[in-house]
Computed example of a mutant assay.
Amino acid sequence: MRRYETIFILRPDSGDPQIKEAIKRYEGIIAAGAGEMIETEEWGSRELAYKIKGERRGFYVRLDYVSPGPVMNEVERNLRISDAVLRYLSVLVDDNADVAKAREELEARNRRIAEAKAAQEARAAALMASREERVEAEEAPDAPEEIMEAAVDEIAGPEGDREPD
């Protein structure tokens, strides 16, 4: 079977329930045609580069699926006749795709993203801790100088025991 990726833009005035319903409808078309969904991503509302059907914003959705060719044609036909869809684009990703392999790749990518995010959060926390330490050090009195003066006084004894410079 072939692996496809279809991205479509919905009208921004569609409410959340209508958006979810539209996504489920297209996923249902794929499932009914002996296809399998790999991933559905909702990219959210974004500003368009230019007006499309009078709209400046649109809600982006990406479907990643494996199916026979006629199923993709049916998905595109339904996207074309829907009033809620501003634009769509389907791309053939792989001519002979394995669903299990595609899901493994997706899980590996998600793991890498999660690890990178955790590392970034750890770096941010370390940076914040070092900034807090720096602020605390600036606010504290000059402790090393005071300690040094006390040590010199202790070694020299009373004022009279000091040698003149």
Rank of each mutant, 00 (worst) to 15 (best):
Y88P: 00
L89V: 12
Q18K: 13
S45Q: 09
R2Y: 06
A119K: 15
A143F: 14
L106N: 06
D98P: 06
A129P: 02
V135K: 13
E5P: 07
R80N: 14
D95A: 15
E105M: 10
A137Q: 06
V152N: 03
P17M: 06
L92S: 15
K20Y: 00
T40Q: 03
Q120M: 11
I19K: 13
K24A: 14
D95E: 14
A143L: 13
S67N: 03
G157H: 08
L106Q: 12
L89D: 00
A108D: 05
I30H: 02
A137N: 09
I147V: 13
E115L: 11
P164A: 13
S90M: 04
L89R: 07
R2C: 12
E47P: 03
K20A: 15
R25D: 08
A137W: 03
E121Y: 04
E121A: 15
V152E: 13
S90R: 05
E5F: 01
A151S: 15
R62E: 08
A114E: 15
P17D: 14
P68F: 00
R11D: 04
G69S: 15
G160K: 09
D95S: 13
A119N: 12
V61F: 01
D153S: 08
L127K: 09
E41F: 02
A34V: 01
A119T: 04
V93T: 11
N78G: 01
A143T: 14
G44E: 04
A22R: 13
E146M: 11
D165G: 06
L92V: 12
E104N: 05
G35A: 10
A137M: 12
V71L: 04
G44A: 05
I155A: 15
E104W: 02
I113S: 07
I147Q: 14
R25P: 02
L10E: 00
A34H: 15
G28M: 02
A137C: 05
N110M: 07
G157V: 05
R77L: 09
L86M: 06
E136R: 15
A100G: 10
R80M: 06
E105W: 01
A84V: 09
Y4G: 04
I30E: 01
E107Q: 09
A32R: 14
E21Y: 02
V91D: 07
E41T: 12
F8P: 00
R109A: 11
A32I: 02
S90H: 03
E5G: 03
R2I: 02
V71S: 06
V152Q: 07
R109P: 04
G28D: 03
V91G: 09
D161R: 12
A124D: 15
R25E: 09
I30R: 00
W43C: 01
E39G: 01
L127H: 07
R109S: 09
R2W: 04
F8V: 04
V91E: 05
P70V: 08
V85D: 02
I38H: 01
V99E: 11
I81Q: 10
S82K: 04
D13T: 09
M1V: 10
G54F: 12
R56Q: 14
R62M: 15
E132K: 13
E76R: 03
M128T: 11
R134Y: 12
I19D: 05
A84K: 11
L48G: 05
R3L: 10
N78K: 03
A129R: 14
E136V: 05
F8M: 05
A151R: 14
E132M: 06
G54D: 09
G35K: 03
A100E: 15
L127Y: 05
V99H: 02
S130N: 10
D142Q: 01
P144E: 08
R123E: 14
D16W: 04
